[in-house]
């Protein structure tokens, strides 16, 4: 624990320095509607705590939660399918890669047209942004499974199901955790973008509303909240990962 503090010290100092520079610059500029200072943002966060935490945070978390669940299920299912069938891999893999050249953000207004201001337009943006890293990372995990280990299982007389459960699932687990840790911030960004473009609640929507009121600190406050939530969620996943993946190295 002590060593961790020490190794994180340079990063903490840098953050502190940047915040101080920001504070100093913002105070010098004195234009809160364009560049609010960190202290002003924190003040606004406190003033707005009730609508932020009670109305908009739950709305955004709903989108993030539903989006993540769909992405994880879809991503893992695609990875398993590509691992099980080379034909499926040749069919799906290039499509998934190509799908990432589509600027989701630009398409999002279309989703609003399709689904209206309902939750599903936001969920769709979230899923489109997150299922890709999950699929690719989990599939990489499958590809990293040692062929020799699978062959050894064959010589024991193992069937496909046994090989899947006893070799592939545990071998892929560390990759799945990496995928989840990557997907959480992306899903939050996706939800915020979706809400920014068309919603009646949520932190992204709130941020945009503050924008129309030229409330700089009010624009930043929900964004600070979003990144804090992302950090906490990733931290929780890391803790679970440390509990589950207790072995070192991936062989």
């Amino acid at each position: 624990m002590k060593g961790q503090w020490k190794s994180n010290l340079p990063a903490a100092l840098l953050v502190l320095a940047v915040l101080m520079l920001w504070q100093w610059g913002a105070m010098g500029m004195d234009a809160q509607y364009i560049l609010p200072s960190p202290v002003q943002i924190l003040q606004r966060l406190w003033e707005l705590r009730e609508p932020l935490f009670l109305a908009h945070l739950p709305a955004t978390m709903g989108v993030v939660g539903i989006g993540l669940v769909i992405s994880v299920v879809l991503g893992v299912a695609l990875a398993v399918l590509m691992d099980a069938s080379p034909v499926a891999q040749r069919a799906i893999y290039p499509l998934i890669i190509a799908s990432q050249t589509i600027p989701t953000t630009a398409l999002a207004p279309l989703f609003v047209l399709w689904f209206g201001y309902s939750i599903w337009s936001k969920v769709l943006v979230t899923v489109l942004m997150t299922f890709f890293p999950i699929t690719i990372t989990v599939f990489d995990g499958f590809r990293a499974v040692r062929v020799e280990m699978v062959e050894l299982m064959h010589t024991f007389g193992a069937n496909r199901r046994q090989i899947f459960c006893k070799v592939k699932v545990p071998a892929v687990l560390p990759y799945a955790f990496s995928a989840l840790k990557m997907a959480i911030p992306l899903s939050i960004i996706g939800a915020a973008i979706g809400e920014w473009l068309g919603a009646q609640s949520g932190l992204g929507y709130f941020s945009r509303r503050m924008m129309t009121q030229l409330d700089g600190a009010g624009v930043f406050a929900p964004i600070v909240l979003l990144s804090l939530v992302a950090m906490v969620l990733v931290g929780v996943v890391s803790l679970v990962e440390r509990r589950v993946v207790t072995w070192r190295g991936v062989t």
Binding site: R146, E148, M149, E151, L152, K166, V167, P170, A171, L173, V245, T246, W247, R248, G249, V250, T251
Partner: peptide, 9 residues
């Protein structure tokens, strides 16, 4: 096999 192929987990 040549390498022990013990499962680390």
């Amino acid at each position: 096999p040549q390498r022990d192929m013990l499962m680390p987990w």
